[in-house]
């Protein structure tokens, strides 16, 4: 049962990601991204990283998706010109992505099969200890970073260009 859920999540992730390549409506793309995120969160939980999974759902589903939707609201307007992307660009982009993916797959062949089952206990507690001891400084720095980003983004997005408008 759990095995089935695992493969189902993997399949759903890959399928939604693949669908992203062909979607034209940006709102759909955001919804597909949301599906990918939720599936990945499910995979995290299956990998005994419940805290990370919950964070993934909170951050991506609650934050990033909303951000994207606001971005669409503020930028996707009629009258904007959408130049067609050149085919050379599409083919070269696809080609380089394919090559990159296949190279990485080839590289992971060296790993062969990883161990299948590992008994680990659920340790959110250990994670919190680590964050507040060994990673205390990066944790604080990240907080400061978030604060400054919050201010900076508010500043950038709020700035109106008087010469243009």
């Amino acid at each position: 049962m759990i095995q089935f859920v695992f493969y189902f999540f993997i399949f759903l992730t890959l399928a939604s990601a693949f669908a992203l390549l062909f979607v034209r409506q940006i709102l759909y793309a955001v919804l597909l991204l949301l599906v990918v995120m939720l599936c990945v969160a499910g995979l995290f939980i299956l990998m005994q990283a419940e805290f990370i999974g919950v964070s993934q759902i909170l951050i991506y589903a609650g934050g990033v998706a909303v951000l994207f939707i606001f971005g669409i609201m503020l930028s996707d307007k009629k009258g904007f010109s959408f130049t067609k992307v050149a085919y050379t660009q599409i083919f070269s982009g696809m080609g380089i992505a394919l090559v990159l993916g296949s190279l990485l797959l080839y590289a992971t062949q060296a790993v062969k099969k990883l161990p299948n089952e590992v008994k680990v206990k659920n340790d959110v507690q250990q994670l919190s200890f680590e964050l507040l001891s060994d990673f205390a400084l990066p944790f604080e720095v990240t907080g400061i970073l978030l604060l400054s980003i919050f201010i900076g983004v508010a500043y950038i997005a709020g700035k109106t260009n008087h010469t243009q408008s």
């Binding site: 660009q89 070269s92 982009g93 380089i96 090559v99 990159l100 190279l103 990485l104 590289a107």
Partner: peptide, 17 residues
């Protein structure tokens, strides 16, 4: 921007190879 990115990735691919 995308051209620059393309060349960056192209170089990355070469490096990986």
């Amino acid at each position: 921007v995308q051209h620059y990115l393309f060349w960056f990735l192209f170089t990355a691919v070469l490096f990986i190879i």
